[in-house]
């Protein structure tokens, strides 16, 4: 009973910079769009850019749950997103005459998309029980490519006549498309809420224990099967939700969701810091913003520069963060280390 009394909503919601950041963006942009300061023709910030930032945030935060907290590399996150986008798109297309309210339609489509992705997340989680590290990474990559390879061949009634080109259901979303980014940012907050609460609970500690040492965690009584499956399923669910937003915003085509797209999310996780939700949010904003700006700036063959920058970020971040030499060097350059050295010198004199 006592612990329930101590449950403090104030510190949970307000004492956390991730919520503050997203809430701030949501309110400010919501007001600006409502007033009419931000429109489709505004330079730099448009509702489309905000939607992109929002679904990217959901993708990166959920991928961080797998990579940063569980410590398994997933190279098929875009595959889950594709499943979510596909199922949500089908739902929206076939329910738009049945359900009158646009928002309700969206919620149903999103839930179905998320659940479909979750089912596949569970299925991909199964080999994760027997495989570790590199093997698992390649299985997730293979999964993403299988999803793409199968869906690019399936025609669906009137909706998907040419599966290689994909489908676009933007016409069916006009009742809420102006405020799609607001819905998306609210979903970002839901994602952060779930991921952070999982990470801070006893389940989160069990997951981190699996990352640090699986055998030790098992001998302490952590149910590894349960936690691995649940982390994969939850991450896939949110990827499916992000996919549902994506389907409302632009064309869903098999060429988009290749493994390079999964790697792009991985770049953001690494840049933001593995295991840091706030870092994921910041890196999503930076990279999506740069992407959109660079896309108009670097056309044609200069587009390779963008990937060059990604590549350098990955290599340099990894060498600085993980190289044994740099880790000891960084410990010595650390301000608190220098401070304690100075203090001990003072005490001596």
């Amino acid at each position: 009973m006592k612990s329930k009394k101590n449950f403090d909503w104030k510190t949970l919601l307000l004492g956390n910079k991730s919520y503050l950041l997203v809430a701030f963006i949501t309110i400010v942009t919501g007001v600006l769009v409502g007033v009419g300061v931000i429109t489709k023709r505004t330079p730099i910030i448009t509702p489309d850019l905000l939607t992109q930032i929002a679904y990217t945030m959901i993708m990166v935060v959920s991928l961080n749950l797998v990579v940063g907290f569980l410590g398994e590399l997933s190279l098929g996150h875009a595959g889950f997103m594709y499943i979510g986008a596909y199922v949500a798109g089908l739902t929206l297309y076939y329910t738009h005459s049945l359900i009158p309210f646009g928002l309700l339609r969206f919620l149903i489509a999103m839930l179905l998309g998320g659940l479909a992705a979750m089912l596949f997340g569970f299925i991909v989680g199964l080999p994760a029980l027997r495989l570790r590290g590199d093997y698992l990474a390649i299985v997730t990559l293979a999964f993403g490519e299988i999803v793409r390879g199968v869906l690019k061949n399936i025609t669906v009634g009137d909706m998907i006549k040419n599966p290689a080109v994909g489908f676009n259901i933007k016409d069916l979303t006009t009742s809420y498309s102006k405020y799609l980014f607001l819905i998306a940012f609210i979903l970002v907050i839901v994602t952060i809420f779930c991921v952070q609460n999982i990470a801070k609970s006893k389940h989160g500690r069990a997951i981190t224990a699996i990352k640090d040492n699986e055998i030790a965690a098992r001998s302490m009584g952590v149910n590894i099967t349960y936690y691995k499956l649940i982390v994969f399923a939850i991450a896939a669910f949110f990827a499916g939700v992000a996919g549902a937003i994506f389907a409302n915003y632009t064309t869903v085509a098999p060429a988009i969701f290749d493994y390079n797209y999964s790697i792009e999310f991985l770049v953001m996780v690494v840049l933001g810091g593995m295991g840091s939700v706030f870092g994921s949010l910041i890196s999503s904003i930076i990279i999506v913003f740069l992407n959109v700006q660079l896309r108009s700036l670097l056309t044609g063959n200069l587009a390779g520069l963008k990937n060059l920058v990604y590549a350098l970020i990955l290599i340099i971040m990894m060498i600085i963060n993980a190289s044994p030499k740099f880790v000891t060097l960084r410990e010595k350059m650390n301000w608190s280390y220098v401070k304690s050295k100075l203090q001990s010198k003072k005490e001596k004199s």
Partner: peptide
Amino acid sequence: SLAVLITAIGVSFLLQSVAQL
């Protein structure tokens, strides 16, 4: 090994983008 794998992915991106440039 996760760090090494991510670095290798980075090298792959690097070679592709240099070739593209």
